[in-house]
């Protein structure tokens, strides 16, 4: 297993490098560069040249890339070509915000959805299962911006219970913080839980058709015990993978929720970076997102192996 983990980490590093090259090429292919976007409508050939020279944008792309890579390896993320702020400063606060939100969502949604998924699998065909299935399918079909806007309309504008924007300023008290983050939290829990509930239920019912479950049934084991003792552990592999993908989504893909609640997170930062063609910023965000995926998927695989005796003790 150690070998597998090391192998995975090495593959992960190669993936990161490939992604950095791809992101660099793609961003450079977009029309316009950071100078023409920052100067916008007011750009003239002279001011463009002056801006490029002042920010090292007049060098060939290949030099810019390797310059970035050399700094990156030494841990220097560089400065934003668009505003001059240190990339580290731009990212640090937002990474904290993103992790805080993603962590809270995971803390609530993972136990909740695994429990509800098990419940549905335990009593298939009953009203519990049917209402859970109906509810999750309905929520998967509704886009997150709709849930978010609807929540704002009801909870903030009509009822005035929660603030419309999620402010997480350092001077806020715990209570203000909790109120501020409540709405994105609710929306994201709804969005990710639905999928995880479905997967847990489907995974367990899938295993329930295996011969060893049939054996257990014939032995006269109670259904609850079959599911919790026999089926669940064999389903952990696929379930943790779905959880890992959902968590990675929470880190990198929640741009719509961040936008609607004006929550300063990483996903929006990357979009801003792409819009201004700010290569060092885009690269730094891409590395964080890609790294998150790699780490979470390695963790999911390790968990799957640990949960499965056949993989744990290979012949």
């Amino acid at each position: 297993m150690q070998r597998m983990v090391i192998q995975r980490i090495l593959i992960g590093l190669v993936t990161l490098w490939v992604v950095s090259v791809l992101v660099f090429i793609m961003t450079s292919l977009l029309p316009g560069d950071v100078a023409s976007i920052v100067l916008g409508q007011a750009a003239t050939p002279e001011t463009l040249a002056a801006y490029r020279a002042a920010n090292g944008l007049d060098q060939p792309l290949i030099f810019q890339y390797f310059g970035w890579l050399a700094n990156m390896v030494t841990g220097d993320l560089g400065v934003s070509k668009a505003g001059g702020a240190k990339i580290y400063d731009l990212i640090a606060g937002r990474l904290g915000n993103t992790m805080f939100l993603a962590g809270l969502v995971a803390l609530i949604s993972v136990p909740l959805s695994v429990a509800l998924g098990l419940l549905a699998a335990m009593y298939p065909g009953t009203w519990i299962d049917r209402s859970l299935t109906f509810g999750t399918l309905a929520l998967i079909s509704v886009p997150d911006f709709f849930i978010a806007t609807f929540a704002v309309l009801i909870l903030a504008v009509q009822l005035g219970w929660l603030p419309a924007i999620a402010s997480v300023a350092p001077e806020n008290t715990f209570w203000q913080m909790a109120r501020g983050i409540a709405m994105p939290l609710i929306v994201l829990v709804i969005v990710v839980a639905a999928q995880m509930i479905r997967m847990t239920r489907a995974g367990i019912l899938n295993v329930m058709n295996s011969p060893y479950i049939e054996m257990a049934i014939l032995k006269g084991v109670r259904r609850k015990r079959i599911i919790l003792r026999h089926a669940f552990f064999n389903t952990i592999g696929p379930i943790v993978n779905v959880i890992a993908l959902n968590l990675a989504y929470l880190v990198s893909g929640v741009v719509i929720v961040e936008t609607i609640f004006a929550y300063p997170g990483l996903a929006k930062l990357m979009i801003d970076g792409v819009q201004t063609r700010d290569l060092p910023l885009v690269q730094a965000c891409a590395m964080i997102f890609c790294g998150t995926y790699v780490v979470l998927i390695i963790m999911a695989d390790v968990a799957a192996i640990l949960a499965n005796p056949r993989l744990r003790n290979p012949k």
């Binding site: 806007t149 603030p163 419309a164 924007i165 402010s167 936008t259 609607i260 004006a262």
Partner: peptide
């Protein structure tokens, strides 16, 4: 001073007194 990019969200924030 901040910005709320989404026009609907910005309006909601004004209507609910957050800005």
């Amino acid at each position: 001073v901040t910005a709320i990019t989404d026009p609907v969200a910005r309006l909601s924030a004004l209507l609910s007194g957050d800005i």
